[in-house]
Design a binder for these strands. Structure first.
Length: 913
RNA sequence: GCGGAUGUGGUGAAAUUGGUAGACACGCUAGACUUAGGAUCUAGUGCCGAGAGGUGUGCGGGUUCGAGUCCCUCCAUCCGCACCA
């Protein structure tokens, strides 16, 4: 009987659903294993062949772990808040919820066809109120917490308030923006507004006026990771700096723990490095420079306190708060002009202008703390207001930027390094011996740094300090399709809404655009006020600022819901908590996380932050969300092009003259680079009367390019057609066979026949007759077949353990080829082979499993075969190696021996003795 | 500029610890069979050479009995960061 994959796959899809084969429950007797895919945003384009690559790999692994007896949690859901649905709503008026639902249905349909072993009873959607209720709850928890540096964890804000009432804030060691020190009396006499303003400096999520990345085209602010090269990540629109009152997350509080936590993670070095880089820790010192004509001092941050005797001027960021007050009269105009110029420059201009040295002297002078010399104070936009203290001590001999600046403005450069030439460039290595530096002279830089910090601290003008480049993350978005904040405003002060009244459900609006006076889209809602008596959302008209108050108009960013979703899967329908204690204690964190590396500085950092926070609060027993991560590479599309010339004719590739414009053409109209010209004419109205300049053989040859798959490039390969044509099992094996999952590669179906053949050969081994019966031998298996099988078991388990998904398929092929050649139809052998193959090709495995007489059980309940070395040993070859004039024997390292075994053979060889 | 990764046939790629480089598959060549198929089977296929043989993992060195693998220099490609003091 032929291998009819369509019928078989249909049959098992239904059975799995009926039997709830992949539903898992907590089971204290079984060890858990949590395999998770990054959940997708359900876009209108549907799933393309790139999506399933990671999903298939993780599904293979989940199935493998299940066969090993683990209780495997393998869920799926949707990151369903997002921009495209909202933009579609703006254009068409269709509610984003509707669009999202339709897209999810399509995704689900596509996913089901590929045979994933997801437990769909645990599906989560970030846009469902039952889910975002708990996103809102976490927000409130953050609002009600502050970071205590002494205990190095988040603590309840109520304890902080209690301390303020008793002792003021003098002994509080917090991560905060609070600079003012107050006593308990002062605190107790503060107004409510003042108290809240102070608390905002401590809360882990807070409202503050801050410089944010404002994207006028998108009409919203963006987090740093959403801005790439000065333009928005989505859409590539320009981004400018704007001072706005926004919610922020005090992620900086976790900078050090986010850094050290990386060490224990099995992530790739490159992702860890990207995060390290993003956090950007640097050690150094802060030093105060007293102003000559004022009581004020300028605090600078430096990583090279050892070079302090090389300071020849100070530079402030143009936005530095002291600039205006210190500038001398004769420089006022020039400084103001420089400041204005700097403010007008966009991020992008500033970046492209790096090589251009600019600056302006303020006329003010500071006193060098050790030499007492007067040093000029400049402003320049190479100093960033948002890093360190917004001021630097310039050491031109040791810093290239300072050197460039000094050279440009003809400022004398003092050399404080022994035997180093600084006439052409600064000497920036940390290996020089310091000279001309009083008590630091003669010391090596490393020693000098410590000595300098000591001296600075002794003088009381600064201290050793660590700085992080990581900024607090802006948490407000001026959008409709996101989580509403559980916040209302009383006298302008933010108030939280108690968890029992959550969720605060997204209100209906007539327009999804911002309001005319620039308010976020929720400003269009007419039922968007909070009644503190009835504890519900009521009409805006009822706002009286006594019992009914306005609600927050911003919504949360896309990363809010995705920062904790892995926790929700452990207990997705809980209405009393984000997840029960028992559930998170049992399932714990994700053992294997599969997803793209593009989330390195976004989702992956924020999820780690929230996990650490929830850990601090005692809600979860771990402080890292994802233990092991694999980053699947992007599958690229192969776009096809037609070329239109100036006369409007379409020119075939080999007839091009160079003056034609390439136009993307739908890849479904192209076969083997040849265009279906009739189909092309029908494709779009403007091509209906297309005229062609063809090849000599009368065909039209298209050009191609490897690009990211996207709807607009008409190069999207959906998995559906391949499932239809070859079957899901073939698609699964083929995607794994393509190469290492981590690697980006263009999609290409050339090799799919080979994989398809493999499954057919596997089918044929079972000699299934016209009545669908397998003809297998129950005799004792022969040695040769046992060897083939066990060689494969060994290889496959080793390869799966090291996540080498592609080589596994090759080993299956070798095994099937060998068994075919051996004419093996032994039941005991083939049964184990079926189990072995089932993670890759679950449908055919189930069918064969059934045909072997295991009708009542599923192959998913089988045991993963164990490797028995006794079937392999005789396959080793020994060969002589000439070594130091003696002859020795060493075993050839065929795949069948472990290093230990090889060692033994070397020792036991008579010649070696 | 800094940090990370990668570099192997016509193609996708294997080679886990330094031990027969190119497994497995695509493609290609020749043949067999046929109900002519995107079917199956057989043989061949790194490069040079008729052959014996030589040569070969981005370039150039080094360590080693032995290097795709370890070390150094350089080159190329990709990714991340980028006036971060």
């Amino acid at each position: 009987m032929e291998y009819n994959y369509n019928a078989i796959e249909q049959k098992w899809r239904n059975r799995w659903a009926e039997r709830k084969t992949y539903q898992v429950e907590q089971d204290a007797n079984k060890q858990k294993f949590y395999v998770l895919d990054m959940f997708p945003y359900p876009s209108g384009a549907g799933l393309h062949v790139g999506h399933p690559l990671g999903y298939i790999a993780s599904d293979v692994y989940a199935r493998y772990k299940r066969l090993q007896g683990f209780n495997v949690l393998h869920p799926m859901g949707y990151d369903s808040f997002g921009l495209p649905a909202e933009q579609y709503a703006i254009q068409t008026g269709q509610h984003p919820e509707l669009t999202t639902k339709e897209n999810i249905a399509r995704y689900r349909d596509q996913l089901d066809k590929i045979g994933f072993s997801y437990d769909w009873s645990r599906e989560v959607r970030t846009s469902s109120p039952e889910y975002y209720k708990w996103t809102q709850w976490i927000f409130i928890e953050l609002f009600n917490s502050w970071y205590d540096k002494t205990t190095d964890k988040a603590m309840p804000i109520s304890e902080l308030v209690a301390t303020f009432e008793k002792n003021g804030n003098a002994n509080i060691n917090a991560v905060s923006d609070q600079e003012e020190v107050f006593s308990s009396e002062e605190w107790n006499n503060y107004s409510e507004e003042k108290k809240e303003a102070v608390l905002q400096n401590y809360r882990l999520t807070y409202l503050a006026d801050s410089w944010v990345n404002w994207c006028p085209a998108l009409g919203t602010v963006l987090a740093n990771d959403e801005v790439v090269n000065g333009v928005s990540e989505r859409g590539g629109h320009p981004v400018e700096q704007k001072l706005m009152r926004q919610w922020s997350m005090r992620i900086k509080a976790y900078a050090e723990r986010l850094l050290t936590g990386l060490e224990g993670l099995e992530w790739t070095d490159s992702i860890k490095d990207i995060q390290r880089n993003w956090i950007g820790k640097s050690k150094g010192a802060s030093v105060q420079f007293q102003l000559k004509d004022s009581a004020n001092a300028i605090e600078v941050f430096t990583t090279r306190p050892d070079t302090i005797f090389g300071v020849s001027f100070l530079v402030l960021a143009p936005e530095h708060p002291l600039v205006d007050s210190i500038t001398t009269n004769e420089n006022k105009e020039a400084v103001a002009a420089y400041k204005q110029n700097a403010a007008l420059k966009s991020e992008r201009d500033r970046q492209s202008d790096v090589k251009n040295v600019t600056g302006q002297i303020t006329g003010a002078k500071a006193i060098h703390p050790f030499t007492g010399a007067e040093v000029d104070i400049w402003i320049a936009d190479y100093v960033l207001a948002s890093y360190g203290t917004g001021a630097v001590m310039a050491v031109p001999c040791g810093d290239q930027r300072d050197w460039d600046f000094a050279t440009h403005f003809a400022i004398p450069i003092k050399n404080i390094f022994e035997d180093k030439d600084i006439s052409k460039a600064a000497y920036t290595e940390k290996d020089a011996v310091i000279a001309n530096s009083d008590f630091l002279s003669g010391l090596e830089a490393k020693v000098a740094i410590e000595k300098a910090i000591e001296a600075i601290e002794q003088k009381g003008i600064g201290k050793g300090k660590t700085n992080y480049r990581l900024r607090d993350a802006v948490f407000s978005r001026q959008r409709y399709w996101g989580e509403p904040f559980p916040i209302y405003y009383k006298n302008g002060l933010p108030q939280t809404i108690a968890v029992e009244h959550l969720p605060i459900v997204l209100p209906e609006v007539e327009k999804y655009l911002p309001t005319e006076d620039g308010q976020p889209p929720l400003g269009n809602a007419t039922v968007w006020a909070w009644d503190t008596v009835a504890n519900q959302v009521v009409e805006n008209s009822k706002i009286d600022h006594q019992t009914v108050f306005p609600l927050e108009l911003n919504t949360m960013p896309g990363w809010a819901g995705s920062s904790w979703y892995f926790l929700r899967y452990t207990d997705p329908n809980n209405t009393q908590a984000f997840a029960s204690k028992e559930a998170v204690d049992y399932w714990k964190n994700v053992d294997l996380y599969m997803g793209g590396s593009e989330h390195a500085t976004g989702h992956l950092l924020y999820a780690r932050f929230w996990t650490k926070f929830l850990f601090d609060c005692g809600y979860i027993p771990f402080d890292e969300p994802f233990k092991k991560m694999i980053n699947q590479g992007m599958i690229l599309g192969r776009s096809s092009f037609v070329y239109r010339n100036e006369q409007g004719k379409y020119v075939s590739k080999n007839k091009l003259t160079g003056n034609e414009t390439p136009i993307h053409v739908d890849i479904s109209l192209v076969d083997n680079d040849k265009l279906d010209t009739e189909g092309f004419k029908k494709w779009r109205a403007d091509f209906a009367n297309a005229e062609f300049i063809l090849e000599d053989d009368g065909s039209y040859v298209c050009g191609f390019e490897i690009e990211k798959m996207s709807k607009s490039k008409y190069n999207v390969q959906t998995p559906d057609e391949l499932v239809e044509k070859f079957g899901a099992d073939t698609l699964r094996c083929y995607e794994m066979f393509l190469g290492p999952v981590e690697q980006a590669k263009p999609w290409d179906t050339k090799g799919i026949n080979g994989v398809s053949n493999f499954l057919r050969k596997l089918w044929r081994l079972f000699q299934i007759d016209e009545n669908g019966l397998a003809h297998l031998s129950t005799d004792a298996p022969n040695k040769e077949s046992l060897k083939s099988l066990h060689k494969t078991i060994k290889k496959v388990s080793e390869d799966l353990e090291r996540f080498s998904f592609n080589t596994v398929v090759s080993n299956f092929m070798i095994c099937v080829n060998e068994l075919t050649e051996q004419k093996c139809n032994n039941k005991a052998i083939l049964e184990q082979l079926v189990v072995l193959v089932s993670p890759y090709a679950p449908h055919i495995a189930e069918e064969l499993w059934e045909k072997m007489g295991n009708g009542t059980t599923s192959v998913t309940q089988a045991q993963f075969p164990t490797f028995n070395e006794e079937f392999l040993v005789e396959s080793t070859i020994e060969y002589p190696v000439s070594f130091n004039g003696k002859m020795r024997f060493k075993a050839a390292l065929s795949a069948t021996l472990s290093p230990k075994e090889v060692e033994e053979i070397v020792i036991n060889s008579p010649e070696a003795a």
